[in-house]
Amino acid sequence: MVQPWVDKYRPKSVSDVAHQEEVVQTLEKALEGSANLPHLLFYGPPGTGKTSAALAIARQLFGPELVKTRVMELNASDERGIGVVRNKIKGFAAGAVGSSVAGYPCPPFKLIILDEADSMTSDAQNALRRTMEAHSKVTRFVFICNYVSRIIEPLASRCAKFRFKPLHGNIMTDRINHICTEEGVTMGSGSMETLSKVSGGDLRRAITTLQSAVRLQGPDVAPATLLDVAGAVPDAVTSAVLSACRSNSFAAIQTAIADAIAEGWPAQAMLLEIQAALLSNDDDGVSESARAGVLLALAAADKALVDGADEQLQLLNVASATQKALCASA
């Protein structure tokens, strides 16, 4: 299996982490100095470089050799029981800190990276707090999470917090272009735009999408493939649904939705597209309150879909709500 590009093109040092200037500055300072890090807490939306930053720190501190013995990466959401947290960390922290390697700071502690810490139970987090205290001399923790509010206060207060901002389009484009040249991929016209739209500021998603598209269709990447691979919906489908909604005919939306379902477009992505379309044109004479009503219907449908409700019925319902709103105000 080919190495995922996400890993292949991970930033090698902290300074390579894209678009997180404040974070990078602070971290670099800390690394240059005594290399005595506090516990760290990285939070922010997915694909903004949190894991990359953590791994980069580890590499910069210990060098490629020592990383294996000094750093443990735990994916908290997979093995999240209290017992697991305690035992694994205890076992890891208990081992002696070996000799250092020249050229790297090699501070006398071990680094534990806890990815997706916010999906740990609060019991486990509490257990972790004790463990942190018990081993504070020989370990440093890096917590990575999307929602800082899901981390219990005692844990969060023991860490230096870093917020990662969502990536802007052009930063992402730089990265993608870099990868494209490295891998010999040519982007068709409009592909880049589609990619950044599809990934929504999530660099990892952009890279995985790109890699999948290349796998599926070879090095010439067309926008349609990207959409397909990302499970996103082309504009044509959305606009067909929306025009059916404007038509004031129930039968029309029924056919439009039935077609969309038969084509296999994912319903959740459709909802996003409908929302975007609805918000983007302000001049269609739809009143704000009607628009809000549709948004409510969209939100409800999204929740229902997550709960496993039927795609066709939910989409039809959203379309019917949209139609009512559009036609009432038109």
């Binding site: 999948s212 397909d228 990302a230 499970g231 084509e263 296999g264 879909l305």
Partner: peptide, 30 residues
């Protein structure tokens, strides 16, 4: 290394994002 997954589903909304992002997603239209 030992095992590849090939999965099928009708309602892709119900597959969690991390799984989707680790797969090559292929849409099969009717």
């Amino acid at each position: 290394a030992a095992c590849r997954l090939v999965m099928s589903c009708t309602n892709v909304s119900r597959v969690i994002e991390p799984v989707r992002s680790r797969c090559l997603c292929v849409r099969v239209a009717a």
